[in-house]
Design a protein around this nucleic acid. Structure first.
Lengths: 205, 205
DNA sequence: AAATTTAAACGACACATTGTAGAAAAAAGG
DNA sequence: CCTTTTTTCTACAATGTGTCGTTTAAATTT
């Protein structure tokens, strides 16, 4: 995936790729916790000792794979400034659109990671990423003093966002990413602004 | 907990109680997955073979304990009909209040189960309970034809709800359960109604 | 194309954990 | 106090983990 990958021994890249694909395969079939390293290696056609020369354990492998997914998803997001500049009540937000597109392209993966019960560490990590991004946007807006703490609002946004994505990933999805992005925007901001005491129609966040 | 418990051998009740408390203890200290049955039994001061005469494995124990928690939480909820009858924009919804109270009373447990990364199966099961209840309420409301599917709206509600509870459980919580219930109601319904094309102020859901 | 370097495969190992079985000891319950 | 039930105890097989040298194979370099 990276440019530096070409300098890495071909065998190493192949081994890692095989192990990751085997994990994805197995994760579609059974719960992550019930997967053991022997069956993972059998599936990957890699010797068990080779696995241990690359990863500490199965959690290590999972984490490195998840990291790659996060990077893919967020690498296309606009900066908070750009996102604010593009804001409009009838414009599907670019970052939301990317989220829906990316999850659709990797539907199997996200389905397994997010839908019930899924891998809890993935959900919470993703939630963390979303939170940081939302926080950065929030910091650039003038907010009135509210009884509801800003942190609670942010968590509301992230929780709603994640659950909508999860629903979309596991549903038949007649909606396009753009439609979903717009609905998501509305469900969230229509809720947030009046609660904070701002008129959503007159105010441009 | 149940009335029938008195007919059950004292030793059996004691053993189960000790094992559950030991699990709670350990779950505060480390990830559920890393807990093994030997250390659980040591903590509970119960022999390992005794554990196996009560439960299949640690997941079985966890599930039975979680079940008891769900029951405690939902046993106090009003029926969907009653909840609808009590609705008001300035009345903290009774079920929401119960949720915040119950989670506050069992804060350690919910903190461990919901906060990151938590036990994913608990979150998803709880989410399922919420969904069914919200569904039942939704079924009793006349909804206009909307581009946004009802299921997506329900998932939005549940996701937002759960995340707000999670935030509250892990925060310092200067807010009372009643306040949180009211904010939760507003964040959610202010977002839902306009998105569905209904004026929230004029419409009584 | 050959030489060098590096990674993968192999078999063996110690170790921990799981889940089960049967007999002895302990403690409820009536 | 006697019967019944549960718990403890010891032992066991089965499975999975993580680590070592050594050998084999294949990629990279010259």
């Amino acid at each position: 995936m990276n440019a530096e990958d070409n300098h890495v021994d071909l065998r190493v890249r192949r081994t890692r790729k095989l192990l990751w694909e085997a994990l994805l395969d197995l994760i579609m079939e059974k719960d992550f916790e019930t997967i053991n390293i022997k069956e993972l290696c059998d599936r990957a056609m890699v010797h068990r000792t080779t696995f241990y020369s690359h990863y500490q354990d199965k959690y290590d492998l999972l984490e490195q794979g998840m990291q790659a997914m996060y990077n893919e998803m967020t690498s296309l997001w606009p900066s908070p400034e750009k996102a604010l500049a593009q804001f409009g009540w009838h414009t599907p937000p670019e970052n939301f659109v990317h989220i829906y597109k990316h999850t659709a392209e990797n539907r199997d993966f996200y389905h397994r990671m997010l839908c019930r019960p899924g891998v809890s560490s993935f959900r919470s990590q993703l939630s963390q990423y979303f939170l940081e991004y939302a926080q950065a946007r929030f910091d650039r807006i003038d907010l009135p003093d509210s009884q509801v703490p800003a942190q609670a609002i942010l968590r509301f946004i992230v929780g709603a966002m994640l659950e909508l994505v999860t629903w979309w990933v596991e549903s038949e999805r007649p909606q396009s990413p753009e439609e979903m992005a717009l609905y998501t925007l509305r469900l969230i901001t229509y809720g947030v602004y009046p609660t904070l005491g701002i008129d959503p129609q007159s105010h441009n966040p």
